[in-house]
């Protein structure tokens, strides 16, 4: 056996594992979504799209993502810029920021439910301060705007740190000399951020955005905890069709829709933030 073959040989179990437990279920789901009694069919997709909740779920998911991801990006960039500049206490602060990452999304949803529900912390505070006379029903079905806001806040609280951690490590590998050169040649702090940090951070931005956007398309537990079924999202509908309505084919169709928009978003980010080979460090 040559030395060249060894790394491939060592990787084989992992590759097989991935193929068996990813590719096989994937093929199964595709079969579920497209197969009918007479072979290939789009009837499951028609059933999915003709249901009144599909459009709302798709729209809600996309709107949530379109708000959460940019806000998280802005927050993560500013936090990472500040943390990178720290001389002492940097890792302590990183650890503190990373605490929400240790929680499951359901736990995060429940924490924010404890804040927003009728007998929750927020209401106790408002009543205690005399700002309202009796507790407000924030998360009722009439208050879809509040549920939206609560989900957005919970998601930002829960998952901004992962972006920040990726960006901090990305900023760490930009050589200091580039900033000094930019400074000497007249760039203000903001210009250094725009002309040096952002372009040189593209690989990390790519990773962070792809990870967060895909996760945002899959938002589920936080929505369930805070809104039940009042705020339909794609992942929630997948769950509903699979376990409540017992139609695995429609659930599989939903899963494929999520997969499709995830792939589309990934391609967009790969394209937008591409670093040409000759422009690499």
């Amino acid at each position: 056996m040559t030395n060249k073959a060894l790394p491939y040989l060592l990787l084989t179990p992992a590759i097989l594992f991935l193929l068996v437990f990813f590719l096989y279920p994937f093929v199964q789901i595709a079969v579920l979504a497209f197969a009918g009694p007479e072979g290939f069919t789009l009837s499951h997709f028609q059933r999915m799209t003709s249901h009144w909740k599909f459009g709302t779920a798709l729209a809600n998911t996309l709107i949530l993502t379109a708000i959460i991801v940019p806000v998280q990006l802005a927050l993560a960039l500013s936090m990472a810029s500040i943390v990178t500049r720290l001389k002492t206490g940097r890792s302590t602060i990183l650890y503190i920021f990373a605490i929400p990452l240790g929680l499951s999304d359901l736990a995060a949803g429940i924490i924010w439910l404890a804040i927003f529900e009728q007998s929750g912390f927020l209401n106790s505070l408002l009543v205690g301060l005399g700002l309202v006379e009796r507790p407000v029903l924030f998360l009722g079905y009439q208050n879809i705007g509040w549920i939206f806001a609560a989900v957005i806040i919970a998601e930002i609280w829960r998952a901004t740190a992962i972006m920040m951690v990726i960006l901090v490590s990305g900023m760490g590998i930009i050589p200091k000399e580039y900033y000094e050169a930019a400074e000497v040649f007249g760039a203000s702090r903001w210009q250094r951020f725009r002309k040096v940090t952002l372009p040189m951070l593209r690989p990390s931005l790519q990773t962070a955005l792809i990870l967060r956007t895909i996760a945002a398309f899959e938002v589920f537990a936080v929505v369930v905890a805070l809104g039940g079924t009042t705020l339909p999202v794609l992942m929630g509908e997948t769950y509903q069709w699979q376990f409540s309505l017992r139609d695995r084919s429609v659930a599989a169709s939903y899963a494929l829709v999520i997969l499709a928009i995830s792939i589309a978003a990934t391609l967009v980010f790969l394209r937008l933030l591409r670093v040409p080979k000759e422009a690499k460090i």
Partner: peptide, 21 residues
């Protein structure tokens, strides 16, 4: 004063030629 207000320019040891430009 910050460097940009000093009327200087500089050549760095590792050149610091921006790779993305």
């Amino acid at each position: 004063l910050p460097p940009r207000q000093r009327g200087i320019s500089m050549v760095f040891q590792n050149y610091a030629v921006f790779p993305h430009l």
